[in-house]
């Protein structure tokens, strides 16, 4: 049932992308500039339609279906053979998002260091200890020093300092 739901969502997205793209192309006045993307969109619509037919055949094969369950959308990964680590993936995603969207204001190196330490502390399945946390901070400092030497000294990349420098 979860597979059917996943595939239904997938087919909807596959149909939506070229449809939205074609709608966006309508605003372009020069027709020559939209021919190539237009052909690609038609191709994508054709492939999405084939996928929809494959989905229909699949749904027929796994009958009887409990159709009302399709209305209860859930995480597409739930219910797989191995339990999906929702919390761990959610935490890492949140940390990455915070890191990327704050790095310019607080500085690339400081943000990188904080991200490194937080990932090591938040995702480690082992019980946290002060000594373990200290080691992780040291590892993070060593890694960020290597990054600093590589990017700022050897490659000469100008990295935004933010509030840190």
């Amino acid at each position: 049932m979860i597979n059917a739901r996943k595939r239904l969502l997938e087919t909807t997205v596959m149909l939506a992308i070229p449809t939205v793209a074609l709608y966006m192309l309508d605003d372009i006045s020069i027709s020559d500039a939209k021919i190539f993307p237009k052909y690609i969109c038609y191709g994508m619509l054709l492939l999405a339609a084939i996928n929809a037919i494959q989905l229909w055949a699949y749904l027929n094969r796994i009958r009887p279906l409990n159709w009302p369950t399709f209305l209860r959308w859930s995480l597409p990964f739930k219910g797989g053979p191995i339990p999906f680590p929702v919390r761990r993936v959610g935490v890492s995603l949140a940390l990455m998002a915070v890191y990327i969207f704050t790095m310019e204001s607080i500085g690339f190196y400081l943000a990188g260091l904080l991200f490194f330490v937080l990932v090591l502390l938040a995702l480690d399945p082992a019980k946290p200890t002060p000594a373990g946390a200290g080691k992780k901070v040291v590892y993070s400092l060593v890694f960020m020093t290597v990054i600093y030497i590589l990017f700022s000294i050897m490659l000469g990349v100008v990295i935004p300092g933010g509030i840190a420098l």
């Binding site: 890492s92 690339f108 990188g112 991200f115 990932v119 995702l123 990017f151 990349v157």
Partner: peptide, 11 residues
């Protein structure tokens, strides 16, 4: 690996 590869990707 998660932390190191993410930082490398960003830089």
């Amino acid at each position: 690996m998660v932390a190191a590869v993410t930082v490398l990707c960003v830089f």
